[in-house]
Amino acid sequence: MRRLYFVILLLVLLAACKSTTVDQQVGAVNMSFVHQVNGSPLTLNTTTYTNKSGEAFTISKFDYFISNIRLIRADGSAYTVPQDDSYFLIRSNDPTSQTFTLTGVPAGDYAQIEYMVGVDSLRNTADISRRKGVLDPGSSHTSGMYWDWNTGYIHLKLEGTSPAAPVDATGARNFRYHIGLFGGYQSKTINNLRTVRVPLGISTGTSRLSVGPNLRTTLQIIADAGKLFDGPTPFKIADYPDVMVSPFSGNVANNYATMFSFGFSSAVSQ
């Protein structure tokens, strides 16, 4: 008799929650972004690195948006993180910004993660009511990653000092890379949005990230800021100490699009 009651209770519960969580197996992925420069940990301001052109430099700021995240299965099908939950601003001086959790991920195995570096053109032209959280141009968090004079978000910012950079008005030798532009609203501009895919393992063939209701899934992605100088189009700080709204910004975007790699993943039963 008691078993019958339990069955009835279960049926009522199932009916109540059909469309939400009970019948769909989901899990969460704890994401973290770890910053390096040419394979060494990124330390702001104090550590000197050297690019392949032989120029020494330090980094004072390394911030970027990650958006439109998709988890791709081995068969090519994918889970797309809901749009409104898919914007993250990673800041090198704010450890809490470097980790976030994707919830509601359908259970299963995933082979690759895909995301955009920057803010897509639709959200870049959206009504102010759809610019919340890290996209709020009035928030101190977003401050510095939004161009108020050229409506749009800065996809990625790298700043620092280098003896190779020319002396600026303050006597400092600074470099600044502020890469934005999403293709334009009413007329064409450069489009510096880049979508990257990272295999979820050491090699594409063996990559696998398991997600499920009883799993604690962790994924670490490495972002190597050194690639900004030494990507497909290597350049010297001396030649391009400041890149913002110029055609060369496309090369910088192509370079940093290669900076992401798989760190490690784990899926532990809980």
């Binding site: 032209t125 009504d127 102010i128 141009p137 108020d148 004079w149 050229n150 409506t151 009413q186 007329s187």
Partner: peptide, 9 residues
Amino acid sequence: DGGVTDLDL
């Protein structure tokens, strides 16, 4: 220069 594309911004 038409830099701002939305009056609200």
